[in-house]
Design a protein around this nucleic acid. Sequence first.
DNA 1: TAGTGGTCTAGACCACTGT
DNA 2: CAGTGGTCTAGACCACTAC
Lengths: 245, 245
Amino acid sequence: MVTTLAIEVDRSSPIPLYFQVAQVFEKAILDGQLKPGDRFENELALAKRLNLSRPTTRRAIQELVDKGLLVRKRGVGTQVVQTPVHRPVELTSLFDDLARAGQEPTTQVLDYRLGPATDDIAQHLNLPAGSDVVTMRRLRCSSGQPLAVMTNHLPAALAPDRDELETAGLYQSMRSRGVHIRVARQRIGAKAADREEARLLDEKPKAPLLVMERTAFDDSGRIVEFGSHVYRASRYYFETTLVDR
Amino acid sequence: MVTTLAIEVDRSSPIPLYFQVAQVFEKAILDGQLKPGDRFENELALAKRLNLSRPTTRRAIQELVDKGLLVRKRGVGTQVVQTPVHRPVELTSLFDDLARAGQEPTTQVLDYRLGPATDDIAQHLNLPAGSDVVTMRRLRCSSGQPLAVMTNHLPAALAPDRDELETAGLYQSMRSRGVHIRVARQRIGAKAADREEARLLDEKPKAPLLVMERTAFDDSGRIVEFGSHVYRASRYYFETTLVDR
DNA sequence: TAGTGGTCTAGACCACTGT
DNA sequence: CAGTGGTCTAGACCACTAC
């Protein structure tokens, strides 16, 4: 049984056709209109039905395969993956994530310092030794409870003002300064809380913490930020979806 | 300055042309032949030089953008991202990862049980309550040191034999039984070691552990495995690359 | 204005799966 | 065998950036 969905695309819209189509199907899957295990319309038929070329249709479907919502099998067909998804991990900041989830994030800037980089930090940011760098340390709370301590290092020219950081996420602040983050590499591990972290996060010393170290690159491939964040294990985890291609 | 690379494609090979091209460039970047910050050849010129169509050439480049090795900017060009990568996270098992890194992984099967699923496990595997399920618990060591305790649940029909698990990874064993894992959803968090985990991993009770819970889907979208793994924080971390598209 | 990447078309041929 | 997805071509037009 193949469920056919009513789809209209707006050819005058600046939103790409493949994206419009992908969005309609994504919504249908997340809403449950297309159920787990359902056969999906085949590419050729869908292209004909939507009056789109096959490559465009194919790209729309591929978007959803990449997100882990659809699975394709050569010679067989396309099916909806079992189990609804909660939310995919994307390249957004924690602040944005929380705000979208209605958790009222707040940020307290614990430290904000401008000065020449140590050798270690300069190396992480791929800058000449002694370049001006802003180092900041923030406490992120949600729903009134401490959630994470975030330490970040940025080239001075890209760093938002201290005040800005209290009301918006770091990435949002950087975006409004024309810095567009395109790639991020992350390491996720665990550690025991030291005395300082325990105090800030309202945990006991040696409590387990989730650690994320991230290096972020802009659309010119330059490093624009390096940070180390520690999260309370009791209040946070990461979600990722891996797809074999 | 644009570095041009000698590239030859084999049109008679079953390996897709876009993949052959992508591999050559990936190797060149990882080897340092193409250096961070380098301008990359533009799509049209590259297509002409390789006698490939633009879409095929484009797809090769896009592979590397998706891996976080290249960054593109409309109207400007393509550049190599700063900082060499260590290794990307892919849909492989820990066993395969370690074996490739020459760390001589060993596996000890602590427990292997076949029986009707509890309600909780049946729900995680999206099976009818009481279906036959194999539950296993394994200790993974590398270089002679304990690394992780892995608890997995599989539909009985898909589970490898107990003996098989001692010499190969779970995914490898499943693959040889015709099960192809295509999508996996993971949650990564942290917790304190309980007494049992501490004993097995040679850590102290309450030591910080990295936790990964994973649900794996095959090429029909069915759930084929659900597992919860705990890693010693001192010996393991996850690496991911996020790309904004 | 020139050069770049982003999108889109209308086909073609092949590889794989299940009957 | 028919039906499906995977790859590939040779163009086209547009949007954005920098000069």
